[in-house]
Amino acid sequence: MLRFALRRLLVALLVALAVSAASFLLVFLAGDPAVAMLGQGGRAEDAAALRTLYGFDRPLPIQYAAWLAKALVGDFGRSQFFNLPVAAILWERLPTTMTLGVCGLAFALALSLPLGILAALRPNSALDRIALLVAVTGQAIPSFWLGLMLIVLLGVVFPVLPISGADDWRGFVLPTVVLGYYATPGFMRLTRAGMIDVLEADFIRTARAKGLSAPDVVLRHALPNAIIPVVSLAAVQFGFMLSGSIVIESVFALNGVGRLAWESITRSDLPVVQAIVLVFAVIYVILTLAADLLNAWLDPRIRAA
């Protein structure tokens, strides 16, 4: 287990290093980041001043090394727009996005696990078809459009929920539903497939033959085995949801990191963009590492591979 954990940790560190290079290099897609930051009508001498201020005039590897060294201690530079340290702005916005992500994940699991289990218990029943419908539509509906339609339905036609902002918990209901629904199909398909596989296994037949009650067999014997791949998917989906928060937060006017990312991109506040790409990517790397380790601990066969 220790060998496996160390190997996996090394890979995660290398991936984190690679994504840091990618986030750093991203801003050079503009050709000259100083000119991009000034926007249209920028003067040449201002660009030159910016180039010196941000050190864009140094060789790339040296810039990257300096940027990475600072990022490692939580210093992502200064936002040009806010004239504040990027880290301080991120710190202020992160709770909203994390709350949204965690609520969305919880909603997705609360919807998909029971549906997936029930669908597996009665394949091809009406319930199985409903589960399939939820999965198929969840994959086809653009989340921003679903958000807008829910705003029309629940904010305008039957006004029960606020349509933007997050002054209290009610502001999180619709964004949670939209973000969670987007992650539901994957969880449900995996839970259903896993349960169907496990329910055919010998030890389940034994448990049934012993006379254990049906809920006991399903929840205590079958579910823990079926749910292992769901853990990995949860880590992956949480990462995708962070990325998806850009769309959701702009639809519902939530002041999270996603909205900050979009605003920073439109006003070319490049240090903020770099920092958010890096933070989201590193969160994903950490989560998938944790999921892999948890999986290996739960299922010894994985360690051997």
């Binding site: 991936v15 994504v19 991009a36 995708f240 850009i246 769309v247 991109i265 790409v277 989201f280």
Partner: peptide, 18 residues
């Protein structure tokens, strides 16, 4: 693995803008 770690919507938006 590295590609999977990069947030798609964010990177796509930034790349198109830049």
């Amino acid at each position: 693995t590295t590609r999977l770690a990069l947030p798609i919507v964010l990177v796509a938006l930034a790349a198109v803008a830049l």
